[in-house]
Write a protein that binds this DNA or RNA. Structure first.
Lengths: 251, 251
DNA sequence: ACCATTCTGTGCGGTATACGAACAAATGTC
DNA sequence: GACATTTGTTCGTATACCGCACAGAATGGT
C-alpha cells in the first residue's frame, strides 16, 4: 500500500469515536484531544462532523455519542452470520446450564463478545456484544489462543500487558504457553477467578465444517455457586453438545 | 458550523463502513462505490485505511469487516449508562414473563435495541443490541413516537417508508397519528403482527427521574402462544413494575 | 477581584487528499 | 480467441485539511 492510500482524516475520526469509553460518556474537545493525542482543532472538526452526521450530540460544551453510532458495529454483527447463528444455541445452552453463556472471537490481544445469553443472576462485570476482555486470562481467550500456532500465541502474549487481576491470575508467559498446550490437548479451558474474584468459567472452541476454529463458546458461573473443579463435569457435556450442533452449520 | 469544520474524508469513511449490511458481508471496491455513490478511488482509499487499522480484512478482492469495528459501537454501549442499568431488570422481566424482553431508543425513523434478554423460544427475527426496526410498526417505536410532540412524530412518519410488512400493518399516517394518541393516553402500545406474522408485543415508555421518556421497554411473544388481546392483561403489570423500578435510577 | 490556567474558536501557510480521467487488469460474452 | 464490460490502480492538479499560533471566553484558586 502506498503512503497516499491512507486517509488520515478518517483514521483520526475513528480514534475520536473510540475515545468515548467506559467512564467517559460526555467529553469535551480538550478531553478527547488528550486521550487521542490529536490536535484540538482536529478533534473539534471530527466531533463537529460526527455531530453534523447525527452520530454525536453537542450541547456547546460536551459531546455524547448517539445510538446512530451503533450502525457501525451493527454493520459487522449483521454482516457476519456467526452471531445470529449461535444466538439461539446460546440461549438454549444458557437455560440448560442455568448460567450465562457467551460466544466470542479474537481481536488482537482481546476477546470480543459477539453474542451472549445472560441469566438473571447478576455478575459484576456487565458484558454484551462488543465487550472486550484480555485473552490471556479469559476462558474463551485461552481456547482461541490455543487454536493458533504456538509462535503466534507467544507473539500475542508478548504484546499483552500481563497483569494480575487477582491473586489467581497466571501472568508468566511460559506458564501460559504450557497452559495453552493443555487446553489444546483437552479441548477446553477452565478459568478459576483469574479475571475477577468469585468468577469462574469454562470454554470450548467453535469450529466450522472444515475444522477451523472460528470462535469460542463459554459458560460462566459465580465461584460461590460452582467450584472451578466441578465446571467440566457440570457443563462440558452441554458445551460439547452445542459445539457439535453448530459445527456443520458454520460456513 | 463553518463549511471547513467538516471533515469529509471522515464522513465518507463512515459511509463506507455502513455499506456493509445484512446481505453484504463481503464487498469489493466497486460494490461499495455503487452503494455509497462515492468515487472508486475514494472508496479504495477508505477501505485500505480500514484494513491498515485492522477494522477490515482484504484478500486482494473482497473486503470484510473485522470484530474490531465493534469497538466503535461499544464506545456508545459502554459510555451510556442505560444499557448496563436496564439489563438486569430486563433479565428479570424476561424470566417472569417467560418471553423475550428488550429496551430500545429512537434513532431517526427507527428503534435501536440497546439491551435484550431473550428466551429459549426462537423467533425468526434475530435481534441484538444495535439491531434496528422501523418505528411505525414496532411496539417500542409507537411508544417512543407517542412521547414526541405530535408535529415531530408526524415529521418522522413522513420520512418513513410506510410499507405493509403483513396484512395487519397500519400504514395510513393519519391512522398512525391516532394510534399514537391512544398510546399516549393509555401509557402502552400493543402491536399485533404488524411487523411479522405470528409476532406480537407490548411496550411501555421508560422515564427518567424527571419524567422524560428516554427509552422503551417491551415484551414480545409468538401470537400462537399469546393472543394480542391478552398481552396487556398478562404482561402490563410486569412492565409497569419494571418501569417504576427503573424510573428513579435513570439519570 | 485578581491572576493563572484551561478551554474554545479562528485565521493562515504548507501539505496531504479527493477528484476525474486515463490506464491496466480481470472478467464475462459470443 | 477477440471484443465488450467491469474492476482495480495510477497520476496530475485543484483544493480541503492539519497543525500551529493567537484571541477571547470560561473556570478555578487565593
Amino acid at each position: 500500500m502506498r503512503e497516499t492510500d491512507f486517509v488520515s482524516g478518517f483514521a483520526r475520526g475513528l480514534k475520536v469515536i473510540e475515545a468515548f469509553g467506559e467512564a467517559q460518556p460526555r467529553l469535551t474537545i480538550a478531553e478527547v484531544s488528550k486521550v487521542t493525542n490529536l490536535d484540538r482543532a482536529t478533534v473539534r472538526r471530527s466531533l463537529l462532523t460526527l455531530s453534523e452526521l447525527g452520530y454525536a450530540d453537542y450541547d456547546g460544551k460536551f459531546f455524547t455519542l448517539t445510538p446512530k453510532i451503533l450502525r457501525l458495529g451493527h454493520a459487522y454483527l449483521s454482516a457476519t452470520p456467526l452471531p445470529a447463528l449461535v444466538q439461539p444455541y446460546l440461549d438454549q445452552l444458557s437455560e440448560k446450564a442455568g448460567q450465562s453463556a457467551s460466544a466470542s472471537v479474537l481481536d488482537g490481544t482481546e476477546v470480543v463478545y459477539v453474542a451472549r445469553a445472560s441469566q438473571r443472576r447478576v455478575i459484576s462485570i456487565n458484558l454484551m456484544p462488543g465487550s472486550r476482555l484480555p485473552a490471556y486470562c479469559a476462558s474463551m481467550g485461552r481456547v482461541l489462543l490455543a487454536a493458533l500456532p504456538e509462535a503466534e500465541a507467544r507473539e500475542i502474549l508478548k504484546r499483552t500487558e500481563l497483569k494480575a487481576n487477582t491473586p489467581h491470575t497466571k501472568t508468566d508467559p511460559e506458564e501460559l504457553v504450557g497452559e495453552l498446550r493443555r487446553v489444546r490437548e483437552q479441548g477446553y479451558a477452565v478459568i478459576d477467578q483469574e479475571l475477577e474474584l468469585g468468577l469462574c468459567s469454562i470454554a470450548v472452541p467453535l469450529m466450522n465444517a472444515r475444522g477451523q476454529v472460528v470462535a469460542a463458546l463459554n459458560v460462566g458461573a459465580p465461584a460461590a455457586h460452582v467450584a472451578a473443579s466441578e465446571l467440566a463435569e457440570r457443563y462440558l457435556p452441554l458445551l460439547k453438545e452445542t459445539q457439535g450442533a453448530l459445527r456443520p452449520l458454520i460456513q
